[in-house]
Design a protein around this nucleic acid. Structure first.
Length: 640
DNA sequence: CAGTGTGGCGCG
DNA sequence: AAAGCGCGCCACACTG
């Protein structure tokens, strides 16, 4: 087992005197603030304060204990991990209580009715522990999951903060908004937690997990989520190796030389002039949708928007230069010289990752647009001298996840050892690879019309189990209930406005329009929950994959530390300068920056981790997760 | 004038 | 004409 959480580690021999602990127990150490500016490390199982010191001493205190390979338990990885990384201290594993609470808060797997003592209120979780809203949801998305006959007692529903600012929580209504998002008050509370409070919260969470219907799955999810949080902090610390000169060349080739502030690049001006002539609109500002739409219609081009997909359908001499202009405008505003100056410092792009930042468990980023790096500028991602990039993405991850979740053997068979879309063609389900792709995406996204909708029945006939899973998830969402991923992340409830719309349609004086609107919004939410179970479980696979890669890279790095075959990647910071390390993550794709002589071993580690992730989630179910993997100097050289 | 909403487009 | 999910960011347009 490679995932930090699931590997039981032996305490260092010299630690056995620290406390009488069985060898197979994982040591945990909680981290918190004792008073402003002072940090404490606490052993909750021995009840001992292990160490305390000034905030500046925190990394060296952690370093003192890391050889015991403890699980570091803290409120928020985004607060604590950067302090360690800038000081050159790497840890093996942690528990992020903020992210865990966000998952457990809605974990309908947790059954509070079976215990005399409901979980203690949390100073951490921003909402009431609504633990039993929909007993059937688990069965809807987890094969073989038993529905927990749980009802939340009112004691579970107390507001967890005794803070007036959180009135909206105290009413006990469903919380809306982003997963893992903390209010200002919550952030303050997080910052002030003592190591003892952190320990209490951890105990509370462990108790919820233990009472849940599927403790091993939730345990894996929380471990993976926490590993992800650590990786997110490490990705920022290491940064994406970025060659600004290459980026500048891309910009100059496309746009012309960098213009003075306020001016448009030469290529854009040329194209704009061209468009103005063709539209006979000499003063047209192409950046204004309003003006542009008016000018297009005045020129006899019947469009309802200025969107590219719509413009593309028209044959008019203004269209080609207009589309070229829009493409350049996008490049300039999203990833132009301004972006380069703001986001690339010292040869590294350091985006701010937000692990668990979306409803489905995918990550978000804030600033820099790291998850939207256009293919065009990926040539600027270049390994340091003597280093290489191992770029890998999981081929058709979501359909494979769906096949495995649903236990659909025929679909898994179509995927095994090949392109799943081709496999579907070979199985005689549809005629072409293109049709297979459209049909499968349509199944996961909830298409109803067009080519996709037309192909769905054939897919359903060939793969009834897979189709039934997503259809069930959609039906659950249409009822306004939650669905759950394989490991136990639950979807949010629809907003109050959604419920109001549904309620209105059932009133005696409801109009046809009320009913239509209710039906439409129910379908909308059903498409969300349909996709949630697949996208969310795929995100879980990716977290496990990445956690495995991280663990294996750490082992390679220990060896590499002894050698100096490659020059250090000093811009990667003190922890990673001589070790292969993750530098980029994009839903189903990773990049490892590695000393060149280790690239082949890294590639093996990445592949083995993918296989491990499949087994962690799906056991021996015969599904595979092949990777498209390349060892390159530049991200632009991967061939896709 | 700042704050908010929307269209458009990049990524998976 | 966006059929069909999840995001973030930019510029423009509108609101108060």
């Amino acid at each position: 087992m490679l995932l930090p959480s699931t590997r039981e580690s032996l305490p260092h021999p010299s630690d056995t005197h620290v406390r009488g602990r069985r060898d197979n127990e994982t040591v945990r150490i909680t981290v918190g603030d004792l008073e402003p500016g002072r940090v404490g490390l606490f052993d909750p199982d021995a009840g001992t304060l292990l160490a305390e010191g000034r905030l500046a001493e925190f990394p060296s205190l952690v370093a003192l204990f890391e050889h015991m390979r403890p699980r570091w338990v803290w409120s928020d990885t985004r607060r604590w991990a950067p302090l360690l990384l800038t000081a050159g201290v790497r840890i093996e594993r942690c528990s992020d209580l903020r992210l865990s609470a966000a998952i457990l808060e809605w974990s309908t797997d947790a059954d509070t009715s079976r215990t005399e003592h409901p979980p203690r209120p949390s100073w951490l979780a921003p909402g009431p522990a609504e633990l039993a809203l929909d007993a059937t949801h688990a069965a809807a998305s987890i094969p073989g999951a038993a529905a927990a006959p749980a009802t939340a007692s009112s004691a579970d529903r107390v507001a967890l903060f005794e803070l007036d600012e959180l009135d909206d929580v105290a009413d006990g209504g469903p919380r809306e908004g982003r997963i893992g998002e903390a209010s200002g008050a919550a952030s303050d509370a997080l910052g002030r937690a003592t190591p003892h409070q952190v320990a209490d919260e951890h105990d509370r969470q462990l108790a919820i997990v233990a009472r849940s219907a599927r403790p091993p799955r939730l345990r894996l999810l929380l471990a993976a989520e926490s590993a992800g949080a650590l990786i997110g902090a490490e990705l920022t610390a290491a940064g994406v190796p970025w060659d600004s000169a290459t980026h500048d060349r891309v910009l100059t080739d496309a746009l012309g030389p960098r213009p003075r502030p306020g001016a448009k690049p030469a290529r854009m001006e040329e194209l704009a002039a061209h468009v103005r002539i063709e539209l006979a609109a000499p003063t047209l500002n192409l950046d204004s949708q309003v003006e542009l739409l008016r000018a297009l219609r005045a020129a006899g081009i019947r469009v309802d928007s200025t969107a590219r997909w719509e413009l593309r359908e028209h044959d008019h001499p203004a269209i080609t230069p207009l589309l070229a202009y829009k493409r350049l405008a996008r490049l300039l505003s999203a990833n132009g010289w301004g972006w380069l100056e703001t986001w690339v410092i010292g040869g590294r792009f350091r985006p701010d990752y937000v692990p668990g930042g979306t409803a489905t468990g995918r990550w978000a980023t804030s600033g820099g647009g790291a998850l939207q790096l256009p293919k065009q500028v990926r040539t600027a991602v270049v390994a340091d001298p003597g280093w290489q990039l191992v770029v890998a993405d999981a081929a058709q991850l979501e359909p494979r996840v769906l096949a495995a979740m649903a236990g659909d053997l025929r679909m898994a068979e179509a995927a095994r050892g090949r392109d799943i879309y081709q496999g579907i063609v070979d199985a005689g389900v549809v005629a072409t690879r293109g049709e297979a792709k459209i049909a499968l995406l349509g199944a996961m996204y909830g298409a109803t019309t067009g080519e996709s909708g037309r192909l769905l029945p054939r897919l359903a006939r060939a793969f009834p189990a897979a189709m039934a899973l997503v259809d069930r998830a959609a039906a659950t969402g249409e009822r306004g209930a939650r669905v759950t991923t394989l490991l136990g992340r639950s979807s949010p409830l629809p907003p109050a406005s959604w419920r109001a719309t549904q309620a209105r349609a059932t009133e005696p004086d409801a109009t046809a329009q009320d009913e239509r609107r209710a039906r439409s919004s129910a379908r909308d939410w059903g498409r969300f929950t349909r996709n949630f179970v697949v996208q969310g479980t795929a995100a879980e696979w990716a977290l496990c994959w990445m956690a495995g890669v991280r663990a294996r890279l750490a082992r390679l790095g220990e060896l590499e530390d002894q050698s100096d075959a490659s020059p250090p990647a000093t811009a990667a910071g003190p922890v990673f300068a001589r070790r292969p390390h993750l530098v980029y993550y994009l839903h189903d794709e990773i990049i490892v920056h590695t000393p060149a002589e280790l690239a082949d071993e890294v590639a093996v580690a990445v592949r083995e981790s993918a296989a491990d992730a499949g087994r962690l989630l799906f056991g021996e179910f015969p599904v595979d997760f092949p990777l498209d993997l390349s060892v390159v100097q530049s991200y632009g050289d991967t061939g896709d």
